[in-house]
């Protein structure tokens, strides 16, 4: 078994605007099971951050507990990292984000971590519209604890032992839309062509971005009868909106000559380009999104792609009117202005 990846890389690896190759965004060799969807998600995160030229040390990756929550170890080893308690990643990101709004926050969670023990935390971080990208690597099981059926498992899906799940699964994208998320997508770890632009767009979105990523557990939930296996997902995927991500600087070159496409301009000037697929899916229509998701579910289809976006949304800092600088850059004078200032504040309430 290899514990190290060779230090050699392709000499012609592309460099980004920071002059970095993808190697600067990698992590150590994964110890997840071979073929785990979570590693494919990690690879897409590496590629997205590299292509967006985000300085690796300006990223914070946070997670809870689970194989999915362990996955951040294996990407972005130069980023800040926090492996929190089971289901508590949202609180930690909230604190970190409130203190330092300048970092790029990636929360990596699992279906167990989010839809079971962490459900309360999840609901509130969505509602708070924290500026972050929240990813759920959704495999329908508790992988780390040997494959117990989780709350997102579909009704009727068979466990490895052959038992049918008697309960309806929680649909995280529906919940996220209802709770006020302003960027909601679903994708599949086995389809990087779809996943990569979604991750890039989610990172560029201002406000709470959520991607539910079906990510097969090769060890406990990749058998026939499971609705989260590679084969089942490939056979049951329906794409809502096919999305390309156009970064800020390329915008002019690509321009809207392609009349088949609809552009959505994000907060930072980058563009989400929706290809016309013939199904006329409009991801800016919240009601239609919810209806389409429900309709697919009833037809045993997994609706993927960008499901809903509000490009003009405000994030929590804007809503609360907080200071526009990270607290650690404010200095003692600003943070602790003294008793005479307190006097003035108190007086204003008298």
């Amino acid at each position: 078994m290899s514990f190290l990846k060779s230090k050699f890389r392709h000499p012609k690896l592309p460099r980004n605007d920071l002059g970095l190759t993808q190697q600067a965004y990698e992590g150590p060799l994964s110890t997840l099971c071979a073929g785990c969807g979570h590693d494919a998600i990690g690879a897409s995160i590496i590629q997205a951050c590299h292509e967006l030229s985000i300085p690796p040390h300006r990223i914070a990756k946070l997670s809870g507990i689970g194989c999915s929550s362990k996955a951040p170890t294996y990407f972005l080893d130069k980023a800040h990292g926090f492996n929190s308690v089971h289901g508590r990643m949202p609180s930690i990101v909230t604190g970190a984000n409130m203190a330092n709004r300048d970092l790029v926050y990636i929360g990596m969670s699992g279906d167990g971590d989010t839809s079971a023990i962490g459900m309360g935390q999840f609901a509130h971080v969505v509602r708070r519209r924290l500026n972050m990208l929240y990813l759920v690597a959704n495999n329908g099981v508790y992988g780390l604890t040997k494959g117990q059926t989780s709350a997102t498992a579909d009704e009727g899906s068979l466990s490895k032992q052959g038992q049918a799940n008697p309960l309806e699964g929680i649909d995280l994208v529906t919940m996220a839309i209802q709770l006020g998320a302003t960027f909601v997508a679903r994708s599949f770890s086995g389809d990087k062509r779809e996943l990569l632009p979604l991750i890039k767009a989610g990172l560029s979105h201002n406000g709470f971005a959520f991607i539910d990523i079906v990510s097969p557990c090769v060890t406990f939930n990749n058998h026939a009868g499971s609705t989260k296996s590679y084969d089942y997902v490939r056979d049951h995927v329906t794409t809502g909106a096919v999305t390309d991500f156009v970064p800020v600087e390329e915008e002019i070159i690509v321009s809207s000559s392609d009349s088949e496409a609809q552009d959505i301009c994000l907060h930072d000037g980058s563009i989400l380009r929706l290809q016309k697929t013939g199904n006329e899916y409009d991801p800016q229509d919240r009601q239609q999104a919810l209806a389409a998701i429900e309709q697919s579910r009833q037809q045993d289809r997994i609706l993927t792609g960008l499901l809903y976006v509000d490009p003009a949304a405000q994030d929590l800092h804007e809503v609360l009117g907080t200071t526009d600088k990270p607290l650690n850059s404010l200095g003692e004078r600003a943070l602790c202005p003294g008793s005479d200032v307190l006097e003035v504040i108190n007086d204003s309430f008298r």
């Binding site: 050699f8 060799l29 590693d39 770890s189 086995g190 990749n222 590679y230 490939r234």
Partner: peptide, 12 residues
């Protein structure tokens, strides 16, 4: 099964 694991891990 096209999981992409090999594509991701390959150092080169």
């Amino acid at each position: 099964i096209e999981c992409g694991a090999c594509e991701d891990i390959c150092p080169m």
